[in-house]
Amino acid sequence: MTENIWPVVELRQYTLRPGTRDVLIELFDREFVETQEAVGMRIVAQFRDEDDPDRFVWIRAFPDLATRGAALTAFYVDGAAWRTHAPAARATMVDTDNALLLQPASATSGFTLAGERPGVHATDLPQSRVLATIYYPDTPPAEFAEFFDKRVRPVLVETGAPPIACYLTDPSPNTFAPLPIRAETVFVWFALFDNADRRAEHIDRLADSRAWTAEVRPELTKRLSGPVEQLLLSPTARSLLR
């Protein structure tokens, strides 16, 4: 099955208590996937951050902002699953406020995913890996998106990392106040690799690319207000993005 993921997307990064990430992932994959989707969300991805053993990263999507507010209320305020399992989930968490509300950078740049989600008892981890890169543009978002497509994307494709999705900050008001959203303007792109070696190969090829180091990266840096964030992500057993 091929699916165009809904256009309102949250990228959430949770800081956890040391040694509890697998506890949260087991609970999340068992209790919080179908129960969120039942009230109007799509759980796109769940990841281990390979650079930080105490970080859990996940992505969910909504068809529109009104549905987002209603769905989050149905899950967090009225839902039995969160009411039952929230104490165990919260016991693993230090900070859950690192959340970005995003929209596709263009009409065709949202996630399109193929395949079915593994069942609730799945334990086999996929070999695939994801690279998520967060830029902080210092230019108008539409202008930065055009620059990315014309100058950055061709080098990424050449070095083995064609972006599978690109998103910009959605500036709309937060429709569920109990969950804060970061106010920064960002541009986020995602690449999917068959395995960790392919991702490492891309990173090395990009570093060795004269087009990147001498031309594109200097142009990119001029258009940014802060350092680039790069997330090396490993999908969980039940991640739809894999």
Rank of each mutant, 00 (worst) to 15 (best):
D49Y: 03
E219F: 10
R217D: 13
G226W: 11
V152P: 01
A196D: 15
R21S: 07
E34G: 12
G115P: 00
Y135I: 05
S225R: 13
V44I: 10
R210D: 14
H121C: 13
T123N: 06
A200T: 12
V77L: 13
L232I: 12
L179K: 09
I203M: 15
A191G: 12
P162N: 07
P53I: 02
A196G: 15
P53Y: 03
V44L: 08
F111R: 01
A161N: 10
A200E: 12
T159R: 09
R17C: 09
N98F: 09
T84M: 03
T112P: 07
D204Q: 15
I134N: 01
Q230P: 10
A70K: 13
V77D: 07
P218A: 06
L231W: 14
P173C: 02
P154V: 00
T185M: 09
P137S: 04
Q230R: 15
M41E: 14
A211G: 14
D194Y: 14
W189P: 07
Y14M: 09
R129I: 07
Y167L: 02
T159C: 13
R198T: 13
R117H: 02
S234R: 14
I134V: 09
V228Q: 11
D149P: 06
D97S: 15
Y135D: 08
L240E: 10
I5V: 14
A71I: 07
G40H: 11
T133G: 02
R12I: 06
A145C: 05
W212L: 01
A45H: 00
T20S: 13
P141H: 00
P227C: 06
E229Q: 12
A99G: 05
L156Q: 11
I134H: 03
L232N: 13
D204K: 15
A207I: 09
